[in-house]
């Protein structure tokens, strides 16, 4: 369970983020990796939705992600709007070893684009990358290294991260990276391949989303609505506490503090 990251400085911005995707693609695992840098092989299916928070530092700003991790089974679909209402960001997850999960992801994207907050930033994440990597390459891709690449490449060319060039036992892979990438570009999404198990690509999702979020917009909206009880409470409600950053937190590429 994630410990709710506390504290809000003047620069801290709350970002509501929702995770969507077919059952068992690894949404909860991705969140768990991001929030507490752990992996549990057998995670119970999410019933309804789970809520976690995590801070993320981006240059001079701190984002506080409020993460809604939803249930994936089709019949929970009608509950989803309850969770994605007012969301500023969404991570739509599919499983690269299961072609049908990309189809489901596409339909989520479509729904978000039509039903959710119009400025919502959407990232597409192809999870379980470790399953298609030879054991050497998956273990040999430390977090920092890949995140450096990601950060330098920026969002436009994530297709050139080392993972795609390393030799993959392609037998398990059902969704070619290129195909998903092409779709993401066309639909205007951020795109990553991730592994909640190794941690690869997980932090990057949240960093890139943070970069793309129109923070000024959110800040302005929050400030502008101070008079309203709800919004005011939202901005000042969190308990005070020092922002706990790693030593290299000032480097933008290791933006996330987790």
């Amino acid at each position: 369970m994630a410990e709710a990251a506390s504290g809000s400085t003047d620069k801290s911005v709350q970002v509501k983020l929702v995770l969507l995707g077919e059952a068992a693609v690894g949404k909860s695992s991705v969140v768990l990796r991001f929030v507490s840098d752990e992996f549990q092989a057998n995670k119970e299916p999410t019933i309804g939705a789970a809520f976690l928070t995590q801070k993320c530092r981006l240059e001079d700003r701190v984002l506080r992600y409020e993460i809604w991790d939803t249930a994936g089974q089709e019949r929970f679909h009608s509950l989803a709007p309850m969770y994605y209402r007012n969301a500023q960001a969404a991570v739509v997850v599919y499983d690269i070893t299961k072609a049908s999960s990309l189809e489901k992801a596409k339909s989520w994207v479509k729904e978000l684009q039509r039903q959710a907050n119009p400025n919502i930033v959407i990232a597409l994440a192809g999870n379980k990358l470790d399953l298609v990597q030879s054991s050497s390459s998956s273990s040999g891709t430390p977090l920092s290294e890949s995140s450096e690449d990601e950060a330098d490449d920026a969002t436009a060319t994530p297709g050139e991260t080392p993972s795609s060039s390393s030799g993959e036992p392609e037998s398990l892979r059902q969704v070619p990276r290129e195909e998903a990438q092409a779709y993401a570009t066309e639909a205007g999404l951020l795109f990553f391949e991730t592994s909640a198990k190794t941690g690869e690509g997980v932090v990057e999702i949240f960093t890139e989303i943070a970069k793309k979020i129109p923070i000024e917009h959110i800040l302005a909206a929050t400030r502008g609505s101070v008079g309203r009880p709800g919004a005011a409470g939202r901005a000042g409600g969190a308990q005070e506490g020092a922002v706990n950053l790693e030593e290299n937190a000032n480097k933008p590429k290791d933006a996330c503090n987790c």
């Binding site: 059952a23 068992a24 549990q40 092989a41 057998n42 995670k43 119970e44 299916p45 089974q73």
Partner: peptide, 11 residues
């Protein structure tokens, strides 16, 4: 669907 969740029930 059941198969997906077998190992995810009170693990």
């Amino acid at each position: 669907d059941i198969e997906k969740d077998l190992h995810r029930s009170l693990p």
